[in-house]
Design a protein around this nucleic acid. Structure first.
Lengths: 132, 132
DNA sequence: ATTGCACACGTTATAGCATAACGCAATTGA
DNA sequence: TCAATTGCGTTATGCTATAACGTGTGCAAT
């Protein structure tokens, strides 16, 4: 799914996520956009839905938050499974890919004839700076 | 963390999860236990907190639900990372472990000096029966 | 024995996350 | 032109999770 031009709301939400230095909840995004006319959660969720579809934003399931993709230039959906390391102290998120992990998980699903749609890998802990 | 004897509430919640053939939300558990005197979400969440700690229950982050561990006989915490495949049609959950995946993720965290506390791997899709 | 502590529990209230359902406006394409 | 699609705004609601308070019980140290 490649990204067509963003609508106004989508662009506003994406901009907020890009400028943030960490994941944001939908309601935090809403608060940051009240000055731009946002009034209700649905305005945010609807924009997020599209941005997720386009692959330019990721949802962090374990903390109910959203981040801009770390390399939005390329199509993130083509990199295989995306994994995240989330620092529980400073909130910083690192995004990475590991083809061997993808391979092992795909192996398992093939053996079990499980049709995978969406895979979540999230490591929560402390980043180097915070663990010190 | 090995499991001491469960308290009454913990035992009730665990029993409900064991009997269920899929993951349950905290509020679904609450409803199933109203006849046993449960009145408030906290009674469920407090029990779940302990059961998670003992490793006899898992939380599925991507669907905000809980399942009994697939092999509660052993200490699940000693198996490395637990991965789940969740069927979005029938709700069935398969639990598995893959040491090579663990290894790759630990490799990454070691390189990045990231101190992992809890890792989530969840594959959502369709099980063999539902994909047919 | 009494005191102090830890822990489970119960209750009320509230916070935080997400979607249903309605209607309107603009766009597109048959 | 008409129908279908898509985005948008609004109100209301539902689901998920925790804060804050108080009670009771068991147990260990003095």
């Amino acid at each position: 799914m490649n990204a067509p031009a963003l609508t106004k709301n989508q662009a506003l939400v994406f901009e907020v996520l890009e400028k943030a230095d960490g994941p944001l909840s939908a309601y935090t995004i809403l608060d940051k956009l009240r000055d731009h006319g946002f009034r209700a959660p649905l305005q945010v969720y609807r924009a997020l839905e599209k941005l997720l579809e386009y692959g330019v934003v990721h949802r962090l399931e374990s903390i109910n938050a959203f981040v801009a993709c770390a390399h939005p230039d390329q199509n993130c959906h083509s990199h295989g499974i995306v994994a995240f390391a989330i620092c529980e102290s400073c909130g910083h998120v690192m995004e990475f890919h590991d083809h061997e992990v993808d391979h092992r998980l795909m192996d398992w699903t093939r053996r079990k004839k499980f049709k995978a749609e969406k895979t979540t890998i999230e490591i929560r802990g402390l980043c180097e700076a915070c663990a010190a």
